[in-house]
Nucleic acid binder design. Sequence first.
DNA 1: ACCTGAACACCGTTCAAGT
DNA 2: ACCTGAACACCGTTCAAGT
Lengths: 228, 228
Amino acid sequence: MAGVSRNNAGLSTEAIVTEALRIIDGQGLRRLTMRRLGDALNVEAMAIYHHFPLGKEQLFDAIVAHITDVDDTPRSASEPASHDAPAEPDPRSWRERLHDWAEAYRAALLDHSGALALLINRRADTPAALRSLETHYAAFAEAGLAPDTIPRAAAALNAYVTGAVIREVRTQSPASPDRVAPETVDGRYPHVARLAPTEGEDHDQSFRWGLEALLRGLVGSTHPTDRA
Amino acid sequence: MAGVSRNNAGLSTEAIVTEALRIIDGQGLRRLTMRRLGDALNVEAMAIYHHFPLGKEQLFDAIVAHITDVDDTPRSASEPASHDAPAEPDPRSWRERLHDWAEAYRAALLDHSGALALLINRRADTPAALRSLETHYAAFAEAGLAPDTIPRAAAALNAYVTGAVIREVRTQSPASPDRVAPETVDGRYPHVARLAPTEGEDHDQSFRWGLEALLRGLVGSTHPTDRA
DNA sequence: ACCTGAACACCGTTCAAGT
DNA sequence: ACCTGAACACCGTTCAAGT
């Protein structure tokens, strides 16, 4: 009687995934429950199974696909990604393209860090993942890497970005500061005591610093200037 | 009547963690249940709460601590780690020490890849983590890094190793081969089609290759020979 | 101290039924 | 096609009780 008929709540996979992410971000992954999700969508929990017949695991897959569907084009944060634009030449250097992707991917993961655990045991089969791979391969080819090392370079880049986000999330977990607790550092860990950052790391800066180091190591003796 | 009295099943935190890891490795994380774990230990599920009063979350913490308690001393795989040996000078170069740690840590994570998801939202506060940090700081200092860059270098190394393991586990997930499915590569991903490894990656080799590249990038223009 | 047994408030998922 | 409602086989955790 409130305007929506009994058997059409306007549910869609998109709406379900979005609401699921809201719950994860707000209450944590453990509290994402079919019943709670149904409540948030004003629907019986079992209605979700009509859109995800394989149940919660399939919902998790969709959540991961949603999060990792990042747009790494230049920084116009306003308009949504247009996946079907005609291939206009990218003005960015290979280094800029890799940097932009890394920043965008990191930001996407950090935006939903509560869902990070879902990433681990799920394959990266999505079109977005393949697009990113193509971007990385092309960039490293342009950088002059030998063909057989290009997949490894792309793998290393992916590993670094993912691992950096995880490390960042781990070190800023609740109830403990970024820096090492002073009482544990007494005598046995002199280097840690002397060198550990005193007031928390700047994760943004650390990330970029490590990224640049990795790219430097990957492209070997390539000249520091970009642009093939 | 079977030799053990009714209220002493010989339970210990160590035994519980070990059995929990056996279940995770054999059946997956989702099937690790207090009741199942109790069954495997020939005990009522509620007995576990006497050793882990804070419940499953505390058990998870102990599992992560157990997995990440790696020994990175030279490759004598036989004898257990002696944490209280007098400080005999380490004959390995800083590069060898970092390599050895990376390999050992990767192996430890891969050994229980089913528990990887637990790592993500849990702090690395353990003594083992602090020992590793000390190792890394000392090695990078010996390599000649500027003091303020040493924590970042250690963070990058940690990120790479963790991320590489996750990538490895993700790409070898069930029901899909390592290499990219040919049908998705048709026309739109020319570099991927041309350069993707045809018969699965050699993860061991890729890992080492990426690790060396990262270290090269981190230590900057240091000479390729080790030993300060 | 160490473990049991019953109970509570939840879960994910199936299934037949409604519209 | 899309959603509901009841039911089933589980969960984690508490609590009082046993020895």
